[in-house]
């Protein structure tokens, strides 16, 4: 017996999809505003991408090509698991190539390759409320968004500067969308924040456990919060990717031994592979070629 045969296309029932679709349309019309939606229990745990999965399941069609990444990589176990889920319940074509995908579901990264018009980037979001760690109460944060009262956030960032000489937020770095809503970009490293600004692609955010969906349409201003005397900056790596030699990309540090040996490689595995296929080599890649 094929148990999956009992479920609808893309797992969710049509009524649930309609409810989520209505929320997505509102989210697109009000960029950066968190639309409450009636999140469903999914066959994977809360906190493991149920929001992103529900968004993807509600937008995906038979002609879509899906890519799923976690930490920038297509082969991390949770990415593998979610990709396999959609291949099974929606029978869609999947890919690891950013350029080929019409929908990219992601956790913690934005691909290095510039996204194009018509592509949709679906983020898995654990805590959608950028003000949550300053004010734990939903009733309060809702008022703050309504009144556009974001002073607390600036105070927090400024306290960082006073204490550490810099803003000590390195990921989930808050942004302001189209000059109105302060938004959590999900726990992507702040390195990726500039990619959100005026992106050609539609960006959808799903937080299943927290029952929120929000969106950034294409060509929308997404500005990282900062101060005139402490402008926003992104991480910079001292060395290129050891495999493909890429610079200006986000790198993972890989520990090679217990004597402090380490190397840096692209976090975006597809980007790295494509570069190597195109003949780019890094320090370790060269060694391989020489061997």
């Amino acid at each position: 017996m094929n148990a999956v045969a009992n479920y609808n296309f893309a797992y969710l029932d049509e009524q649930t999809k309609r409810m989520i679709r209505r929320a997505i349309l509102k989210a697109v019309a009000i960029p950066g505003y968190q639309v409450p939606f009636s999140s469903r229990e999914m066959p994977m745990p809360y906190g493991w991408g149920t929001g992103g999965v529900q968004v993807t399941a509600s937008i995906i069609g038979p002609d879509d090509v899906l890519k799923v990444i976690d930490q920038g990589a297509d082969d991390t176990t949770n990415a593998v698991s979610i990709r396999a889920f959609f291949a099974k319940v929606a029978q869609v074509q999947t890919t690891t190539h950013t350029a080929e995908a019409s929908i990219i579901q992601t956790r913690h990264r934005i691909p290095e390759r510039k996204l194009e018009a018509g592509q949709i980037l679906v983020y898995q979001v654990p805590i959608p409320e950028p003000l949550r760690f300053l004010e734990p109460r939903e009733t309060e944060t809702r008022k703050m968004h309504a009144l556009e009262e974001y002073g607390l956030m600036h105070v927090k960032l400024y306290e960082d500067i006073a204490r550490h000489g810099r803003i000590a937020t390195t990921y989930a770095y808050p942004v302001k969308v189209e000059g109105r809503y302060v938004m959590d970009p999900s726990p992507t490293p702040k390195f990726d924040n500039p990619k959100m600004h005026r992106s050609e692609a539609l960006q959808l955010f799903g937080a299943g456990r927290e029952h929120r969906i929000y969106a950034v349409p294409p060509h929308t201003d997404v500005v990282s919060l900062d101060f005139e005397d402490h402008p926003f900056t992104i991480q910079h790596f001292e060395q290129p990717c050891a495999l493909c030699g890429a610079e200006q990309v986000y790198l993972d540090e890989v520990i090679l031994d217990d004597r402090g040996g380490h190397m840096y490689v692209c976090s975006d595995t597809d980007h790295c592979e494509e570069r190597r296929e195109a003949g780019h080599v890094g320090v370790l890649g060269m060694k391989e070629a020489a061997e």
Partner: peptide
């Protein structure tokens, strides 16, 4: 085809509001 037709119409509306 309620599933496929609704999905296609939704994507048209989504694209319309996003662009």
């Amino acid at each position: 085809d309620p599933v496929v037709d609704a999905q296609a119409a939704f994507r048209a509306v989504l694209d319309a509001l996003a662009n």
